[in-house]
Design a protein around this nucleic acid. Sequence first.
DNA 1: AACTGAAGCGTTTTT
DNA 2: CGCTTCAGTT
Length: 822
Amino acid sequence: MADPAQREPAESTDFSAPAPGGIAARALAGRAGGAAYLADLNPEQRRAVETLDGPVLVLAGAGTGKTRVLTTRIAHILATGRAYPSQILAVTFTNKAAREMKERVGQMVGQVVEGMPWLGTFHAIGVKILRRHAELVGLKSDFTILDEDDQVRLIKQLLEAENIDDKKWPARVFAGMLDHWKNRGLTPDQVPSGEGAVFANGRGKKLYQAYQERLKTLNAVDFGDLLLECIRLFRENPEVLRQYQDRFKFILVDEYQDTNVAQYLWLRLLAQRTSLSSPPAGEGTEQKNICCVGDDDQSIYGWRGAEVDNILRFEHDFPGAKIVRLERNYRSTGHILATAAHLIAHNQGRLGKTLHTEDVDGEKVTVTACWDSEEEARAIGEEIESLHRQGHALDEIAILVRASFQMREFEDRFVTLGLPYRVIGGPRFYERAEIRDALAYLRVIHSPSDDLAFERIVNVPKRGLGDASVQVLHDYARKHRVPLTEAARVVVETDSLGAKARSSLRGLLEGFSRWRSQNDSLPHNELAEIVLDESGYTEMWQKDRSPDAPGRLDNLKELVRSMEEFENLAGFLEHISLVMDTDSDASADAVNIMTLHAAKGLEFDTVFLPGWEETVFPNQRSLDEQGRAGLEEERRLAHVGITRARKRAKIFFATNRRTHGLWQTNIPSRFLDELPPANVEVAESKAGFGAGGNFGGPFGPSRFDQAASFGSDYGSPGWQRAQKRRGGFSEDEQSDFADAAEGGRMGTNFQRNARRRHGPLTVEGELVAKSTGTVSAFSPGDRVFHQKFGNGNVVAVDGNKLTIAFDKAGEKRVVDSFVERV
DNA sequence: AACTGAAGCGTTTTT
DNA sequence: CGCTTCAGTT
């Protein structure tokens, strides 16, 4: 491989780095063969980059330049000629992180990175290895990767075959257990018998075995297998393992605190130095050059199988490991950082880091009490509008919630305010029913033996092939050990199906063979269009009168469009099975709403943190199920939340919140008591009932007027009284506010419904973002259709904003460009 | 085979 | 309160 970077001379790596940006540093950088990339690093970062030999753990606190270190390290390895791009294994958790790293290394080193084939997610790299040696683990190299949906359906079939009541033993629960086992690297025979016995009266272990067997016959793997089968491959085939051990001269791991046991085992195998490979020149470090970067304080995926222990035990696991701490934060102002640091200090079992900044103190972190979640949304809405008026970009504002049910309140509020927003996370593009149906068609075309895909679409659209017919196919397939499509081909020639079902099935099969032959001659995106057309799938949605049908059709179009980027159908299908994320249209200027989990790795000027109440945050179930470990993870989540903020962190809590339809009164989060008073200021809700004294201050002093006493007595009698007064007062006021907010509250079911199925509500963001001062072409009385709210009548016109009485969604204000006359 | 009502359940979710 | 899922009905 042509590799200009390889021409760089190897540099000595053990000089101690002078101050970053200093003249000496630059001189040294110059000496290092034009290694300008090193000059901008601080001493710790530089050590993390330049300590190339042996195991290294980089503890990178929030905002300390973690990604930068990682990418620079790769650049450095290349520039110093220590390895070719293809000899570096760099693993991340998300596709996004992988993409980012690729880009940034590319910028640093140039085109060379084109040839970094081993930079990717654990799973993507797992697939790559597995496809090469599939036959060694009993698979064919074109195996399919099942997603969760397929997995559950498969388990359901197994349960049925075993006569297990799926009422009592739900498939989802078992899928969860499987996931748990696989996260811990356990094969069926390794499952502790106690755990295996929990499910279906002791049949758990057996089911796991049956599940794996079924996967093999389907020539399929699930996500967990991408790692587990790799591990098995390595263990059973030492020569294969050695090949990879020799290949990877350097291993880099991002977000090490999130690795689970399986990933750890996988890494360990690859990082072991074999006796065959040449020992390092120095005095006997027998370890590979593995560098793990992570932050134990940001471990928030324990419930997903992540083992914080992996990072805590690093020195033990990799003897002789060097540890580099990155504690200089380049993101947040002093008060924000101090607040986060003070909070996280309440956790035990940390490796211990103290973040510091050279930035100004900035604004104090604020804590605002609200009467209920509605007031909370109103208060935050107002603060955002105020920031917006001052010229702050909405894009730079985020609302980070603990759980997605909290989002609704904000969406409702922002719709009435006409404030553009976008929900990040939510159901993903490829998880939507219409997309998965479309993909199922393509999967069957690509691999006729994909039974799960076939089953999914055999009667979608409805073509008279219901359970009974499918059962006939199943019976045949099972008896003759052939795939369903094959069974169908035979059965359709017999009279075991009704006449109607028979001709319908024949039509479908003919369709498939036709499409399959066209697959060779047509571009795959054109093929996809033809398939969706001829199968009647598009028509099905065209006929559907539900308000979200047009959106689904749009999604299908988008799917077809996105296929252009891939060489062929196989490539496309591989991509989507691994890359379940979508680059959501970050174009419009809109407030970001997301969960704290989704916010990891992101940063914003202003961060709103609502819902800091006991039972919500820390989440009750976390506490119930995980005890102190759960609490500590919740605290890390709080820490992640605060450290997302560059300039402003604003915490809110509501005393009353409606959960499952019932009003519940909560006490303020214990985390509030763990914030440092000196860096935090208690703010008055500007949108409360009575608006913080604007109406003559009916409440008297609340404890929030005395910041001095902050932190200990949210449950004090005085506080309780204050809350009561607020509550008592609000009852009168509440109806007024209810009227004012009516537009936002009416028909929210409908709205929620639409979003659930439709994915991120970016529509809403654009909707309002486009509202300029233009005059509308609509007039009162017009009958209109809106993609989300359905049909309705125009009630009033104000510029390009229409007030519409929707049949189902109630009265709403929307921008005219989003409705059409009917 | 397709619709309709009742019952159950209700965090976070990188691949 | 609302959504999803399933079983029973036509």
